[in-house]
Lab assay of single mutants.
Amino acid sequence: QIFVKTLTGKTITLEVEPSDTIENVKAKIQDKEGIPPDQQRLIFAGKQLEDGRTLSDYNIQKESTLHLVL
């Protein structure tokens, strides 16, 4: 699982696999929060994550925290 922290300070927990794409993660966030993926920007280690890449591409491991910017 990974954590996604929103600007409001809320933390969302997501069940993911390293092979999941960023697009996939955004879809999971939409399921939980109702935020359309095209409004979501995910930041990890100061980098904006691209939809077509996977979590493992960015070396995002379990218990990692991503930041969600709208």
Results as ranks from 00 to 15, higher is better:
residue 57 D to E: 10
residue 35 I to N: 03
residue 51 D to P: 07
residue 44 F to Y: 15
residue 14 L to K: 00
residue 39 Q to E: 09
residue 65 T to R: 05
residue 64 S to H: 07
residue 64 S to W: 04
residue 26 K to S: 01
residue 57 D to Q: 06
residue 32 K to Q: 11
residue 49 L to Y: 00
residue 22 I to C: 03
residue 42 L to R: 00
residue 61 Q to H: 11
residue 59 N to G: 14
residue 63 E to C: 14
residue 36 P to K: 07
residue 43 I to M: 13
residue 70 L to P: 10
residue 26 K to I: 03
residue 10 K to M: 10
residue 24 N to S: 14
residue 5 K to D: 05
residue 10 K to A: 09
residue 30 Q to A: 14
residue 38 D to M: 10
residue 27 A to R: 14
residue 45 A to Y: 09
residue 31 D to W: 08
residue 9 G to H: 05
residue 37 P to S: 12
residue 7 L to F: 13
residue 61 Q to Y: 09
residue 38 D to F: 12
residue 21 T to N: 04
residue 5 K to W: 05
residue 49 L to V: 04
residue 21 T to W: 05
residue 46 G to S: 05
residue 70 L to W: 10
residue 35 I to H: 10
residue 7 L to M: 15
residue 60 I to N: 01
residue 66 L to R: 01
residue 28 K to D: 02
residue 14 L to T: 02
residue 20 D to E: 10
residue 32 K to R: 09
residue 56 S to L: 11
residue 37 P to A: 15
residue 13 T to A: 09
residue 64 S to L: 04
residue 18 P to S: 10
residue 41 R to E: 11
residue 6 T to S: 07
residue 19 S to F: 11
residue 56 S to W: 08
residue 43 I to P: 00
residue 66 L to Q: 01
residue 18 P to D: 10
residue 62 K to M: 15
residue 59 N to A: 08
residue 43 I to A: 05
residue 35 I to M: 05
residue 35 I to A: 04
residue 16 V to R: 02
residue 68 L to R: 00
residue 63 E to I: 03
residue 11 T to Y: 10
residue 47 K to C: 13
residue 40 Q to D: 01
residue 41 R to H: 13
residue 4 V to H: 01
residue 2 I to G: 01
residue 10 K to R: 12
residue 38 D to A: 15
residue 58 Y to F: 04
residue 16 V to W: 13
residue 32 K to F: 07
residue 34 G to M: 05
residue 55 L to H: 00
residue 61 Q to E: 11
residue 56 S to K: 11
residue 60 I to P: 01
residue 50 E to M: 10
residue 63 E to H: 13
residue 26 K to P: 00
residue 4 V to R: 00
residue 31 D to P: 02
residue 11 T to Q: 07
residue 34 G to W: 03
residue 16 V to Y: 14
residue 59 N to W: 05
residue 16 V to M: 08
residue 21 T to V: 05
residue 53 R to A: 08
residue 20 D to M: 10
residue 15 E to G: 07
residue 45 A to R: 11
residue 13 T to D: 04
residue 18 P to C: 12
residue 43 I to Q: 07
residue 38 D to C: 15
residue 30 Q to S: 11
residue 64 S to D: 13
residue 28 K to L: 10
residue 70 L to E: 09
residue 25 V to K: 00
residue 31 D to L: 14
residue 24 N to E: 15
residue 14 L to P: 00
residue 19 S to T: 12
residue 6 T to Q: 07
residue 34 G to V: 02
residue 16 V to D: 00
residue 21 T to E: 03
residue 38 D to L: 11
residue 27 A to C: 12
residue 69 V to N: 06
residue 69 V to K: 08
residue 44 F to K: 03
residue 28 K to N: 03
residue 55 L to P: 01
residue 48 Q to H: 13
residue 52 G to N: 11
residue 57 D to H: 11
residue 37 P to E: 07
residue 11 T to A: 05
residue 16 V to P: 01
residue 46 G to A: 04
residue 2 I to A: 02
residue 47 K to G: 07
residue 46 G to L: 03
residue 6 T to Y: 12
residue 15 E to T: 12
residue 70 L to Q: 09
residue 18 P to F: 15
residue 46 G to N: 07
residue 39 Q to S: 10
residue 2 I to F: 04
residue 29 I to P: 00
residue 31 D to A: 14
residue 18 P to K: 06
residue 53 R to M: 15
residue 1 Q to P: 10
residue 54 T to K: 10
